[in-house]
Design a protein around this nucleic acid. Structure first.
Lengths: 134, 134
DNA sequence: ATAAACCTTATAGTTAACTCTAAGTCAAGG
DNA sequence: CCTTGACTTAGAGTTAACTATAAGGTTTAT
């Protein structure tokens, strides 16, 4: 099964513009074309795009993702680099999770703060509390 | 205890440029000045900045954060809006956590994939596996 | 008293990641 | 045959969030 750029855009919740931009940036050099130049995405191309989106969601910039794509076409010589890359990403994502936990704690604290204030009808209820200044 | 813009920048791991930018965007209207116009940050201003950084880390754009800051100076009339804002943020952060879990799963899968390939000396080891295409 | 190290303003420049426009090609349906 | 709609390219425009510059003022240490 092959897909047009519009179909892939829909499937992956991207735009055709974005996919052409990725192509221009060298992220999807493996996508084949019809004789008249139209991109034909294979199933494996979709898998690759999912990995690209995964890396992007970890905050990796497109230029670094391109390095990884380049390594992929270098074959076994780059296996160590690619392993290292994912191990480093794993650490990054772990740090992001911890960061997000802390964010959640403050958000929940604020939810409670405003719930209490709302129940009391005024924020004054917190004004004695030296810890909660804002 | 009062702090200069440079001290606050260091404390919160921002730059003085960023803090002046926040001020220009109306994020910190409560920061007072010396008679000759120099910003003097109070302890409570640091707390406010921490909340701003927290909201920012949830992906909230600066203009929306400004709305919240405006609500804060409106007093009790905006308690409901502020409560709603944090409840909505809570849902957002929860969704981000779930997203990050999925990302982590794919990353860990890739770590294993490359570990196996590295041990075998070649990526060929995965070529029979129809599920793992990339 | 003079240089270093801060601060101020207004405004211009940068960066990443899109996002869109213009001009044109191509295949299918009425 | 001709229109519709999806595709192509090159290149320009957008946006958010900084980031830096220029020109100048103030405070502190020698």
């Amino acid at each position: 099964m092959k897909y047009s750029i519009g179909e892939v855009a829909k499937k992956l919740n991207l735009t055709a513009y974005t996919l052409r931009y990725y192509d221009k940036e060298g992220l999807i050099p493996f996508v084949e074309r019809t004789p008249n130049g139209i991109r034909m995405f294979k199933e494996s191309d979709l898998d690759a795009l999912k990995v690209i989106e995964c890396l992007k969601s970890t905050g990796m910039p497109i230029k670094e993702i391109k390095n990884f794509i380049d390594w992929c076409s270098e074959g076994d010589a780059s296996l160590q680099q690619r392993y290292d890359l994912f191990m480093e990403r794993k650490a990054t994502v772990f740090a992001q999770m911890e960061e997000l936990e802390k964010t959640m704690e403050l958000i929940e604290h604020k939810c409670n703060y405003y719930k209490t204030a709302l129940d009391a009808g005024t924020e004054e209820i917190h004004k004695n509390n030296k810890i909660e200044g804002f």
